[in-house]
């Protein structure tokens, strides 16, 4: 395991560099930030001063060498927009996204497992039909639209929840509910599918015939079988969330990394963009490794014969 981890970490370093280099180069393709940061009537002289001050008048390779030189000294540059160190801005925003994503995934997984199991107990029963329909619908509604409808109903009409912001526990409800729907919808279907086939396996039938209760069969036997595919899909969904719940963050004023990223893209704030991408890329690599480990553990328990 340790050997695997070490290899995995080493082999992940190069992609990290590739991501940052790619972002660095692509970002500079989107045009010169000077006109965004200078007054509309800026003179040529002011434009040239700006470019020189930000090092944007250098050839791309020189800029890149400077940047990576800085990164080695933990200097990620400064934001054009705010003048703050870019790394500080990214590090400040990331936990907000991480907390939101983690809470969302935990709730979505628990809810999906419960609903999926309930549906799988009687395949094609009423509960199954309803839950499949609801979960499919949940996974297919545009999130920004749902968020706005949610605000309209729960914050304006009913007045139960705050519209937006990060002001207290109840402010988490709408963003999480909005973010949760797609993972929940997808996972319900995965869990249900896996459970249905697990429940029809001979050894489950055996357990049942020995008089094990539904609850015991589900929790001790079938669920374990269903865990592997669910984990994988959940992992992919989590990666999506970590990469920034841009839309939800934008609407609810959530100070997360997704909002920071889109703002810095639109504002051509290159240093911040690079720092934000680096952080999320690292997080995604870590998450992928965790999923692998989780899967290896499950695999070892469930199917020891399959390759480790």
């Amino acid at each position: 395991m340790l050997v695997y981890l070490r290899q995995r970490i080493i082999s992940s370093l190069l992609p990290l560099v590739v991501v940052v280099v790619g972002v660095f180069a692509l970002a500079r393709l989107t045009g010169n930030p000077a006109s965004l940061y200078l007054p509309l009537n800026a003179t040529e002289q002011m434009r040239a001063d700006f470019m020189a001050r930000e090092g944007l008048d250098q050839p791309l390779l020189v800029q890149m060498a400077d940047y990576f030189g800085g990164v080695l000294r933990l200097d990620f540059g400064e934001s054009l927009r705010t003048g703050e160190p870019a790394a500080a801005m990214a590090l400040r925003a990331f936990p907000a996204t991480l907390q939101l994503a983690a809470t969302t995934m935990v709730i979505a997984i628990v809810a999906a497992v419960l609903v999926g199991c309930w549906a799988a107990l009687k395949p094609n029963g009423v509960a199954d039909r309803i839950s499949s329909f609801v979960s499919m619908a949940a996974a297919s509604i545009p999130d920004f639209w749902l968020a706005i409808v949610g605000i309209w109903i729960f914050a304006i009409t009913l007045g139960w929840l705050p519209t937006s912001g990060v002001s207290g526990p109840e402010a988490w409800i709408l963003p999480i509910a909005t973010l949760m729907l797609r993972p929940f919808g997808v996972l319900v279907q995965i869990v249900r599918g896996a459970m249905v086939s697990a429940l029809s396996e001979p050894y489950i039938k055996l357990a049942r015939s020995k008089g094990a209760s539904d609850a015991r069969v589900v929790t001790h036997h079938a669920l374990r079988n269903a865990a592997a595919p669910a984990l994988t899909v959940a992992g992919d969904l989590a990666v999506g969330l970590v990469n920034g719940a841009v839309v939800v963050e934008t609407i609810f004023g959530w100070p997360g990394i997704g909002k920071l990223m889109i703002d810095s893209i639109l504002q051509r704030d290159f240093a911040v963009l690079q720092a934000a991408v680096l952080i999320t890329a690292i997080a995604i690599f870590i998450l992928n490794i965790l999923i692998d480990i989780g899967y290896a553990l499950l695999d070892a328990r469930v199917r020891p014969t399959v390759k480790a």
């Binding site: 933990l74 590090l91 936990p95 907390q99 100070p255 997360g256 680096l278 952080i279 870590i286």
Partner: peptide, 16 residues
């Protein structure tokens, strides 16, 4: 990279 990871963990409990 590790250093960033470290700071990240430290600060993750404080912000949101």
């Amino acid at each position: 990279t590790l250093a960033v990871g470290g700071t990240l963990v430290l600060s993750s409990c404080s912000v949101a």
